[in-house]
Design a binder for these strands. Structure first.
Lengths: 295, 295
DNA sequence: TAAATAGTGTCTGTGAGACAATATGAG
DNA sequence: CTCATATTGTCTCACAGACACTATTTA
């Protein structure tokens, strides 16, 4: 490359002389919503265990939001990508590695961190409860798995000239051994004849730090969307599982009951039979399946 | 909030004393893939015009990548969100405002900008060719609308122990009055029994700056995906349009031919009839529709 | 009248929803 | 034998793919 710029410099010369300007720069954090599924004890030994969707939160030990619960995360360092930073945090917090990791959205609202200018590049991770055992409670920071519930609370639609504004308010509840956090997140869709836009806002926030309620809402919606047309839910399953367990996971994610026959047809290509069966179930044993890695 | 931290400070005191640390911070750019659809002149006055999908590129006037073509974009400033920065750039480059704008992905590969540490928070914008007229050629920087073609070039699948690696190579071609840019982008999906990941890489790059070939690939894939289950394509249409024109836009985005009857059934709820018709078409006139803002 | 496109009708197969019927192990 | 779940069968309905047919304008 021998092109010369306005100052008569080659690219190499330009780069040698380049000094980062004095523009203010943001800090960029990688924050993660780490999902897992756990069993809730059943009433009777003959009944099946119910499944719960949980996410990992960490209690803040310093200002700001001292004592509130936050998503695990940390700043991206100069010689890593945001994804590597997320993977590093995941390893530090849970000890697990090599799991499903997907970038969600980059939040950059001004003032979202009261200290300084911080953007959050958010990720979603899915880990199965097998791996989970490794790290029950470990280091100094207080961490806990919160049971998650996310449901539509209110739906509003206002017609404007030239379009409408639709607002969906969702209630986010997180609970873990006595702790109960609650938030309401509003998703506003503005449709005009020319443009369309979606915007999240926190309507109510009790116990969560920063704008993390938004990030969690964003993660659940992504998860719910992808459950229906990918094999993403299989990342929440252990090596071997029954189809009923898989169905329970689909149900707890989407918040809907599914019909058994239709469900089995739908996931038929995503799983592969094994010759193993459940034992001592108090009823007919169930065939165990594993994730199908064919197509 | 009267909680005190380890140093006995309230949150207010903490924030008053807070000084941004000396950690190195990245610059964050908002880069945009601006799509539009234009008509290509037909051979005969009786034939319909074909549609072309185009994106806006800007020729770099300084190092690095002097003379190469880059996506419009710029650094996010301290008192704006990344989205506002994208909207601002869009306004500066095209003069249009109030269009469909969607965040795509944040790219943070190390070394993606040879000058310094720069992340790119990328956006996709859709504008219709009506608005386009406003700004044909305007300011100092050389800008041009490039016709876009993106097709699967090669597909490879390698079985590993415990999973497989699938690589899809796409050819990206951009052309505008003599200029012809070409790139090959590989999308690698790694599936193991535990994890799954997707990764983009630039295999070949002729004429595009930075990692912008990746960003463009990412945008096309998002657009192709969403065309099938949202009304996103309507943002590329003028106020009034025929169903055949809309079908052409669907076809040029997805790269597939569609059947007329099925297509009309599919978009029936997304559009609304008007009482206007095309004129002087050299054949039967066509009813004009507009975007339906009902549901 | 011919060319070219607009717009509609209908057959068929696929697949999801719904529900029913049968199977099996623990106790 | 009963409980509770596992697993399979099948009926119906909605809908997309495929193709054909009719309608309407301009030159």
């Amino acid at each position: 490359m021998d092109l010369l710029d306005r100052d008569g410099l080659t690219e190499r010369e330009f780069l040698e002389r380049y000094r980062a300007g004095d523009y203010e720069r943001p800090s960029v954090a990688a924050d993660m919503v780490i999902f897992t599924v756990t069993d809730e004890e059943a009433d009777s030994y003959r009944k099946l265990a119910e499944k719960e969707l949980r996410i990992l939160l960490i209690r803040r030990g310093g200002h700001p939001y001292l004592g509130k619960w936050a998503l695990p995360g940390g700043f991206v360092r100069p010689n890593e990508t945001a994804e590597q930073a997320a993977a590093r945090e995941l390893r530090e917090e849970t000890g697990v590695d090599d799991v499903y990791l997907e970038q969600l959205y980059t939040f950059s609202d001004i003032g979202r961190d009261p200290r300084t200018w911080v953007m959050s590049c958010s990720y979603m991770a899915l880990i199965n409860s097998d791996k989970l055992e490794l790290k029950a409670g470990d280091d100094a920071a207080e961490a806990a798995w919160f049971k998650l519930s996310y449901r539509l609370l209110r739906e509003r639609k206002e017609l404007a000239e030239d379009g409408y504004v639709k607002t969906l308010e969702y209630e986010l509840k997180l609970s873990s051994e006595g702790e109960e956090l609650k938030a309401v997140v509003a998703r506003t869709m503005t449709a005009k004849s020319t443009s369309t836009g979606t915007d999240y806002a926190i309507v109510l926030n009790d116990g969560l730090a920063f704008d993390h309620a938004k990030i969690i809402a964003c993660a659940i919606e992504r998860l719910r969307g992808k459950v229906n047309y990918t094999d993403i839910a299989l990342h929440l399953m252990p090596k071997l599982f029954t189809l009923t367990e898989l169905q329970q996971v689909y149900e707890v994610i989407s918040g809907k009951e599914l019909l058994k026959a239709a469900f089995r047809r739908k996931v038929a290509d995503l799983v592969a039979e094994t010759d193993h069966y459940t034992e001592n179930a108090g009823h007919r044993p169930s065939r165990l399946y594993r994730r199908n890695l064919e197509d």
